[in-house]
Design a binder for these strands. Sequence first.
DNA 1: AGCACA
Length: 253
Amino acid sequence: MARPPYEFDPYFLQPDQDRNLINTLFVSGLPDDVKAREIHNLFRRRAGFDYCQLKYTGRGNQGVKFDPQAGSVLHIELARSNSRRKQKPGSGPYVVIDNRTKASANNTQETSSDNGDSDPEEPSGADNADSSNNDELQTLKSDTVLDPEHSVPAANEQLERTVNEGAQPCSTLFIANLGPNCTEYELKEVLSKYPGFNLLKIRVKGGMPVAFADFEQIEQATKVLTELQSSLLPSSDRGGMHIEYAKSRMRKH
DNA sequence: AGCACA
């Protein structure tokens, strides 16, 4: 495949970046048996199209009910961040990642090019004579999205009425995996560097402290969640703190 | 994995 001599995708872009810099589209609502070739054909004539990456996710037919009509409508929006995956020069026009292979049956390979998140070079070297550079992809029972890592949450919510692991954004954070000697003071010291920080409450649950940290805005809580996730406090003795959105907002104080 | 206060 002739590819442009330049890269469209800057690497290592963060999710919070300026939306004007997004040059990746997130496509959902694809049928279970969609083929990467079909997606590629959908966009190949469009100016500036570089490549597509098709990912079969873990959600699928099992118990996911959505309106059959709505389910057949393609939904396209700006991705939350740009695709980082780089094509290998010798590979095909699209990338397939299949995460839904363990529970189901057979094949696990991507057909068209490089694989998932960590892709060391093939130790065997130049074995690219691999004749299977073709377009026949495994068909798996699963929901199908393009590049779901970069998806906008709303897009997934449209597709699934599934159990969402209590991950609704909230302006209060729940902080766990704190050391038994963690003090309100040391935690407050860290949190108060962030804008919008309101109040911290520490409770002891089964001997181990957990904390609730309240912020003015969800966005401010989100920033703290991502930036302080897994970070260590002086009192930490079992790894970094684990931060989630609280299930409910902190009450009046 | 563990989510309280009012």
